[in-house]
Each structure stands twice: as structure tokens, then as C-alpha cells.
Write a protein that binds this DNA or RNA. Sequence first.
DNA 1: GCACTTGCGGCAAACGTTTGTGTAAAGCAT
DNA 2: ATGCTTTACACAAACGTTTGCCGCAAGTGC
Lengths: 343, 343
Amino acid sequence: MESRSRPVTLRMIADEIGVNVSTVSRVINASDTEARRWASGEVIERIRAVVAERGYQRNPQAASLRTRRSGLVGVLVPRLQDYVLATIYEGIEEAATEQGISTFVTNSLDVPANQIARTEIMLSRRVDGLIFGDAHTGEPFLDELAERGVKFVLVSRRAGNHVSATCDDVMGGRLVAEHLLASGRRDIGILAGQPYASTGIDRTAGIVQACRDAGIDIPPHRIVQGGFDAPGGHEAAAQMIEAGGCPDAIFAANDFAAIGAMGVLRERGISVPDDVAVVGYNDTPLAAELPIPLTTVRSPMHEMGRRGLDLLVALLRGDEVESVRLAPDLVVRASSAAAPSKM
Amino acid sequence: MESRSRPVTLRMIADEIGVNVSTVSRVINASDTEARRWASGEVIERIRAVVAERGYQRNPQAASLRTRRSGLVGVLVPRLQDYVLATIYEGIEEAATEQGISTFVTNSLDVPANQIARTEIMLSRRVDGLIFGDAHTGEPFLDELAERGVKFVLVSRRAGNHVSATCDDVMGGRLVAEHLLASGRRDIGILAGQPYASTGIDRTAGIVQACRDAGIDIPPHRIVQGGFDAPGGHEAAAQMIEAGGCPDAIFAANDFAAIGAMGVLRERGISVPDDVAVVGYNDTPLAAELPIPLTTVRSPMHEMGRRGLDLLVALLRGDEVESVRLAPDLVVRASSAAAPSKM
DNA sequence: GCACTTGCGGCAAACGTTTGTGTAAAGCAT
DNA sequence: ATGCTTTACACAAACGTTTGCCGCAAGTGC
């Protein structure tokens, strides 16, 4: 049974050629030109040949043991079920694979105790660095981690002045404001998401600012916090409508929350977009397929993940790095068509 | 800076106590009672105390190097963006963490070349075993892998007679048939999903069989293959309607495909459920929130992931294992309400 | 002739565990 | 006291890499 044959090692290659393992190691790890510093052209060729023929694969744990670098990075997200985070992670994983890095990903469910526990597990696996997609503003956790000298970057959400790759969510909020105001909406309600997530905070700040710039104040009862999923949006929208009647536009900080809100509107017989415009965020593929196609802000999720990983490797290399803020853009669909003139 | 201080090792602990590293290693790795075989009660206590105080964490790569087991498992899925696979992976990851195992997950996008390449990467990382969520029926890849002695299990989709943890998809299909027939539908169209996925195949087989048992034959032009996502469902449904008009019921092998199909129906002014009932699969959380809440088959996705991992560890332990087939159940909602009597 | 670089490669020491084997001392029966 | 098993450890050899250092020969400059 072939499974019993142990993997081929450096020593086997070296013995077969009659050269020392150190030479094989150097030749394998050096670039074409650099290899010439360590061996003659002939030896290099023979090593390359035998390596290919025998199908040598470096033992990564042995290498890690020696080099004290694991080529592993840990990724924490609130929840992988969330399409947005799954997409960001895809970007991370794609970029990581290109760099020969492997990633562990795990859910924190946005509960701080989990964030801490999962991070410790990652560290005990000797990851070189971490990527957090679940940063909470106001929590001391990340600061403490930085203090300990742990290398990490943030994606999706920013926090403090830790390095991050995010979407320009303030700008996203402004885009929505401009669109809604231009199509005649004046009473805008906001499903702001979780209070600890910079995404919701910034999107809300963006739309509020832009409205104020246009001379419109959004009152506090028109801003309600809630989960970033369909049930969360459902609940938040219901609460808003209970409290102050239905606005003529609803901006949800997330497509899924928007879908939840549309559920409430349907139940109450409120028409979209005639009675109320609905706008989401992220341009989930479902947005276009919904019975009432959803206007939404497209954010570069995949790219965010890639950039996050790139930032981390730069950081690990010791480079000076700066956060990146990617621009979103607005995708207008039926759910925010201009209201029929009120009469 | 604390980051500069190297992690504490077995040797440090041993030296501090004045005992050999081997003793420390055995005491740490043995159960409470078993430890007494290796050290006196007093020494055990001192070791435990120092380990806790100094915050010792085993270096996993050093341990792997010695034991030839990595505590790593690789997971391949078609795409993590897919809610279904993301949920299954959550189950896998949860169970893995409980067992002290770490997982790598990656997307194959259902393309065979990727499956092979990604698997090789996983193996080069020295994973102990693999979990495939993207098995293709008819591909020789998995057989070859088994031949090489690689340990793996399947989730979500089954293939050949490799060990798998799946949903009883045939039963799921039957449930749908019974429901649709009972509510007066007779002309059933099926969005069967990808031809290489056992999920779609089995669900289709289940509904077809149950209909035949009831004396109803589903003609070939009522079965159309396509992607498991919204665009895939959109396209497949459009094609079916072009080819033979609209049936009075559509069963999509997946909730997202169902949503895509509902998009087509909306565009064409066909009413759900009056003109056509729509049924999905998996009971995605969106199903309940849709403007027309979706009837669907609930499958135990999370559990499937957990069981998959359990199977793999059993397999790695050398146990004799058998595939598990979990039962689905039907969730009836508005999208398949009984048609108004035709007159 | 000399000293000195350069090219090519070997030696050996780590990295932190795990585990087979060795062995003093202690306990027990004879 | 002698033999025999336990008890409670110690010793040392791996596992597969990477990397600092050393050595030898051939070439270079004077």
C-alpha cells in the first residue's frame, strides 16, 4: 500500500545525489540566480531533477520549527454564514494561497469572550498573524493584543487606529442620502446595525451628515440598531414603525436587514417603493433577484479581503503600512424608484 | 517588549523544577490518573503549577514533527459564499475545535482542476485527513485519492461508496412530491441543479419516484439542470418556461435557485402561488422573510458538518465507520399554498 | 613567490517534542 | 540477606528543516 511509504525528505534527495542536505535545502529555497551562490550548475540541475522526479514536498512543520515562522494566519469573523464575511474571507484565502500562506478561519459570533478564546487558540497554533473581521469599537481587546506584540490587521470594520482594509462606509451613506433626497424622499429611517460595528456607525454617520448638509435632520427615533441579518432587520423595522409610523425611505446598513425590513412592510401592507423606498448595503447577489429588486450600495468585499491579507504580510515583513479605504458605489433598482407625487 | 520573549518550552519548565523534559511531557499529556504512572503526586502537582503559572503552550509544529500527526484537516467546498456550505463548514469547524483539531477551508468552485490542486496544497500542509463538500459523481479523483491511502470523508454530497455524512435527499424529494400532489398540483417542473452533484440528483430522483408512484410521470422537458444559485435558478426556470410553458409547480433543488425562479415568474407576471407553487430546499433563513415566504425542505446542515468531522476522526483513529444519512423535513409556507380551483 | 578573494559545498547545531529504553531506589516476599 | 517486582524518574534518539561557520580548491592581483 502506497500510503505506508513515508514522504520523501531532504536527506533522501541528498543521499541519492551524494551531496549534503544543506546544499539541497539552499538550492531549493533560492531563486534561480541565487542558487548559483551555493552549488554548481550541474549539481543544481541534478537536485532539481531528483526533487521533481521523487515529488519532494517540504515538511512545513519541520521548517516552522526551525524558522519560527509557520506560514499560517488566523482569521476571525462574526459569522461565515454571513455572505459578506464569507466573501471577504474568500478574498483573504485567495490572496493567501497565492503567497503560499494557509489560513484558519473561525466564527466569533461577535461575542467578546469568543473573540478572546478563539484568538488564543489561533496563537497556540503559532499563527504568524491574525485578521479580524469582527472588531468592536470601544473594546480594549485589540489594544491589549497589539501591546503584546501580536501582529494583526482588520477587515470590514475599522477600530482605533489599527491597520485596516475597509470600505468607505461614510461615503456609502452619503451616496444613499443623495439618491433618496434626489428622488423626493424626506423622512428617512435608518436600520443602523450593531452599535459596536464601525460599518453601521459609519454608514449611519454618512447618511445623517449628508442629510444635514441638505438641511434635513434625521431625528433619533428614526435610527434604530439591530442585527445585520434578516431577523434583525425585521425586528428593527417593526420597532421603528411602531414608534413613529412608517418613514418614506428606509436605509438598512445591510442587504439582509433590508430584506427583513421588506418582510415587515409586506406584512403591514405597505408598498415598496410607492409608500417607502428601501435601500440596502453590499449588493448581495440576491438583491437583484428579489421580487422587488433592491437598491443597494456595492462594496468591494472580495478586494477588501485581498488587501487585508496583503497588509498583513507587509506588516509581518516589517514594512510600514497604512490602512486602505475602498470606494463603494450605488446600484439603483426598483425598491427606491421615485415615489408617485403625493396628492 | 513582551513580544520579544520567546514562548516557554518544556525544557524551561523542566529546568525550573529540576526534572527531565520527558517527565514533564508525559505528565502534561496523560490523564489525571494515568500521570501517576510517570511521576509522584508531588512532582505532578509542581509541574501542573508551573505550567499554569508560566502559561506554557505546546508547540504544535514540534509535536507534529515528532508524532507525524498534524491535528489539521483540510476542507474543500464548492464555495463558501454559498450559505449551505458555509453552514456545513460551521458545523465542521465547531466539532473540530472541540476535538482540538484545526481546519483549513478552501473553495474549489466545483471545477475538477481546482479540486486536485487544492487537495495537493492541503496534503503538502500535511493534513491528517480531508473533508470534501464538493464531490462529483463520476469523477475518478476521489477513488484515486483513496487508492493513495489518503483519509477523507464526504459531506453534503455522496459519491461512490466513500464514507459520507449527507441529508437523505431522496426522502426530501418525496416529501415535496407528496405535498404538491396533495395540494392539487399535477404539472411539476424541476430545477435539478448540477448534474454532477448527488444532492440535485437524489432530490430529483425522490420527487420523480414519488410522482410515478402516484401515477404521474414527469416528462424530460420538465427537468432542467443549472447552478445552485439565484442566477442559475433564474436561467433554468426561464429555459423551462420557454420550452414548455409554465408548470403549476416548480421544485428547485436549492432555495437560492428558487429565488432566481421567482424572479423569472415576477418578470413574466406569473403569480405565486396562484399560478405556480414554488418549493425550495435547505430552509435558508431568507426563505421565511421573502415577500412570498418560501416552502422548503429543511436539511440539517450544521449537524451534517459535525457528523462529517466525527466520521473523519473515527476514520483516522482506525475505526470502522459507516456513512450517515440525516432526515430532512418539509416546511410549508405561502409559496405553495393550494391553487384556487381552476375554472 | 605571496596573500587574497571567490566558488562550491560539507559539518553540525539548533528548533521543541515524543517515546523506547535504562536504572536507581524502594517495597515485598522468601 | 537474596531475589523480584514496582515506582519514579533520567537519557538520548529521533522527527525534517534551516543556517552559521568552516574548508578546500582554483583563480586573481601584485
